[in-house]
């Protein structure tokens, strides 16, 4: 049974959740927040979307196979771990540079990697479970 109100809200809510997740991700270095929490929140948005529209629509929405999202998240976090090694420091050392007054560093890169990884992982878990349970089809 289609539910127009729920569909509209889920569609809108997805953007709200992802936006809020990005906000938490960027805020995470000094205040509560961070990659993992942001990833969970963004994935919760996708989960609601999936419950309403079905798992194929989620995969259409994000366009990339979640497996590659996980892989690239792992790659980004891995880069953050090994970049300091190239400069002769122990792995995972925070290294900072500033671009137009905004401090950018490997901890941010690491958080972004975790964010991407968590989103990919949870989306892949729940789309698979939905496919197996034949949800919405």
């Amino acid at each position: 049974m289609r539910n127009i109100v729920l569909e509209r809200i889920a569609n809108l809510f997805l953007y709200v959740m992802v936006g809020f997740a990005l906000f938490l991700l960027l805020r995470g270095h000094n205040r509560p927040g961070g990659g993992f929490i942001a990833g969970i929140i963004a994935a919760a948005g996708f989960l609601l979307y999936g419950i309403v529209f079905g798992s194929e629509k989620v995969l259409e929405k994000i366009k990339i196979n979640p497996r590659y999202i996980m892989g690239s998240g792992l790659l980004i976090a891995f880069l953050a771990a090994i970049i300091p090694m190239l400069f002769g420091k122990p792995p995972l050392t925070g290294m900072w540079t500033s671009l137009a007054g905004i401090a950018l560093g490997t901890p941010l890169l690491f958080d972004v990697g975790v964010f991407v990884l968590v989103v990919g992982m949870i989306v892949s878990i729940f789309t698979n479970i939905m496919d197996v349970l034949k949800w919405n089809s």
């Binding site: 993992f36 992982m121 878990i125 698979n128 479970i129 197996v132």
Partner: peptide, 20 residues
């Protein structure tokens, strides 16, 4: 605890899939 929860999340997903 956060680390343990993350590990627990992965294991929960896996164990339910295994059960299924």
């Amino acid at each position: 605890i956060l680390t343990a929860i993350v590990i627990g999340l992965g294991i929960a997903a896996y164990i339910l899939a295994l059960k299924y």
